[in-house]
Amino acid sequence: MAKLDEALVSSKLRYPWRASRVLGYGKGMAGGLLFAAAVVVPFFLSNYQVFQLTLAYVYAIALLGLNLLTGYNGQISLGHGAFYAIGAYTAAIMMERWQIPYGWTLPAAGVICLGVGWLFGIPALRLEGLYLALATFTLALAVPQLLKYFEAWTGGVQGIVLMKPEVPWGLPVNQDQWLYFLTLGVLLLAMLLGRNLLHGRVGRAIVAIRDHPVAAATMGIHVPLYKALTFGVSAMYTGVAGALGAIVIQFVAPDSFNVFLSISFLVGIIVGGLASISGAIFGALFIQFVPNYAQDLSKAAPWAIYGVFLILCMYVMPTGIAGFLRRLTRRWQVGGTADRAV
């Protein structure tokens, strides 16, 4: 344990804010307020707006997964849309083909993606940085074709249409609001689990591997095991998000899981902030709502904006929105800045 703590100390030196609990109280309050707002807000929005917000939460779960891998563990994935697709099709096939209640599809998608992610993570262990990016990018491009190929299961190009879940237990909400609360619940659970994972021993190992793989190995961290594990858990998060996404949208089709889905996840974690849990929410709101407004300009505009944001983030705001806010509040509270390079 002492060794792992040394690893943490080294990352604390580089990311001083983690060591600080100064903001703990204020952060808790802000979190509470945000939660209250999140609970109240669906009652003041149209069904369509509730649906959009729900989808943003779905993305946030997927982004948590990708951030675990890329932000915390330092492994680049340009193909997380593949795991999202697996989750979505797991849900769709279970619900439509086998008439299994939708509630069961979430754990099923999670377990399947954990397994697939783990399996993919094993060869990925041997692929350093750039090659991992290459392999996952190819995976992202190959997904729609694969989905079309297994037509008997996936319904081919036509996709699968799903039923909208009924509201259980006679709750006083409509179907959209129910899906909203369900997704919000899963998101909070995912954030809590992610937080606990990262603040524990496993999390320290994950971060140590990113910061200095060789040192981590000499400290007795089983690097391959942790990297494959991170890949699996990351895929699990994204898979659960995929299942939820399928339920919320009530439709899956191969071409919605193209390479641009994977890229928008990347946009999400970059804009939201690498290695930040709250960043996932900012990132998800960004990828959900920016395209909506940009679409008015041109069909192509959202992507042009994404591209510009990706590049600008790398130039000026390497810590994303979350890191930027953190820096602002730190400057205000402690009078210092916590800067870091990605």
Binding site: L130, W303, G307, F309, I311
Partner: peptide, 14 residues
Amino acid sequence: ILSIVIVCIGLLVI
């Protein structure tokens, strides 16, 4: 590497 890859992806998208 991650930053350069991301800039390339940004370029792709643009």
